[in-house]
Amino acid sequence: MHADDRLAAIRGRIAHAARLARRDQDDVTLIAVSKTHPATAIEPLLAAGQRDFGENRVQEAQFKWPALRERYPDTRLHLIGQLQSNKAADAVAIADAIHAVDRPSLVTAIARAMEAQGRRPACFVQVNIGAEPQKGGCAIADVPALLAEARAADLPVTGLMCLPPAGLEPAPYFALLAKIAREEGVGDLSMGMSDDFETAVMIGATHVRVGSALFGARPAVEPSA
């Protein structure tokens, strides 16, 4: 299947899920997760009209995207992986959205970088929705305090992000994230990936992060940076 066919199929599935939930499909942003995939794999999706892309690592984004953005300047880049505080300035410089704000030290670093650069990418607070020790994200109990710190630092926090536990039914975790977002007064929900994005859309996702369903299996070797 060609890239434009895969893209059309995913968009069709998002539209169907949105209709079932009585939502407008235009309220759901499809993020094509291009991490580890080379520019040659990304360009067909750009040519087919896809404009939102997700990368895990700042260094990889810096390597791949400047040249692509010269040809497609309206591309929006989402950083969806764990972010070290010492990479905050680089993240603010290249990203249009940062989906992994999960601790006070990172809030401070991002706020400082935004002030220095005059750029304000949208920020999502990542929640460790399954309380998994191996995963990043803010503990559920700490979400109100972290949001308060982010708002006090004038970060443009637009929503919450989560990665539910692998191998478990994701719907309860998506529903819990949606409940927390309502309670805390944030509107965007970054949740749902290749295996469960339709469920996420039906529960209120505004951003779904789809990689393998668009690109196929990841390359064994990541692009050098």
Rank of each mutant, 00 (worst) to 15 (best):
A109R: 03
R112D: 12
H16R: 15
P165V: 11
I42P: 04
A148C: 11
A217L: 15
G136V: 07
R19T: 13
L147A: 02
V221F: 05
Q59N: 14
A93E: 14
V127I: 13
A200E: 04
L176F: 00
G211Q: 00
C138G: 05
P104D: 02
D90Q: 15
T36G: 07
T108S: 14
C162P: 11
I42R: 01
Q126D: 04
L146K: 00
I110G: 04
W65E: 01
D96G: 12
P44Y: 03
R11K: 15
A21Q: 12
F215Q: 06
I180D: 03
F124K: 01
D74F: 09
E149C: 05
E222R: 13
G216W: 12
A166K: 03
V143I: 08
E149R: 11
D90R: 10
A95F: 10
R151H: 14
A166S: 12
Y173W: 12
G187R: 14
L20D: 14
S105G: 10
P66A: 06
G118M: 11
F53Q: 01
V210C: 05
A91D: 06
L214I: 13
R112W: 00
D74G: 03
A205C: 12
V208W: 06
H207G: 08
K135S: 04
S190I: 02
L155N: 01
A39T: 04
F53I: 02
A145T: 15
P156A: 10
E149M: 06
I98R: 03
T206K: 02
G118V: 13
M1Y: 12
A200S: 09
E132S: 13
V28D: 05
Y173G: 03
A141Q: 15
A181F: 08
R23F: 13
A9N: 02
D196N: 15
A220Y: 07
A148V: 12
P165I: 13
E184H: 10
H207W: 04
I94S: 03
D142H: 08
P121T: 07
L176A: 12
A153L: 09
D102T: 08
G159C: 01
V58E: 02
E55M: 05
V33K: 02
P156Q: 05
A148F: 07
V107K: 03
Q59Y: 01
Q25K: 13
N128V: 06
G159D: 04
Q25Y: 03
R120P: 12
F63H: 11
A148R: 15
H78D: 10
R182P: 00
D96S: 13
H78V: 01
R71F: 03
D154P: 01
T36H: 09
A213E: 14
M161F: 09
Q62G: 06
G185A: 00
A200L: 11
C123N: 00
C162I: 08
G130Q: 06
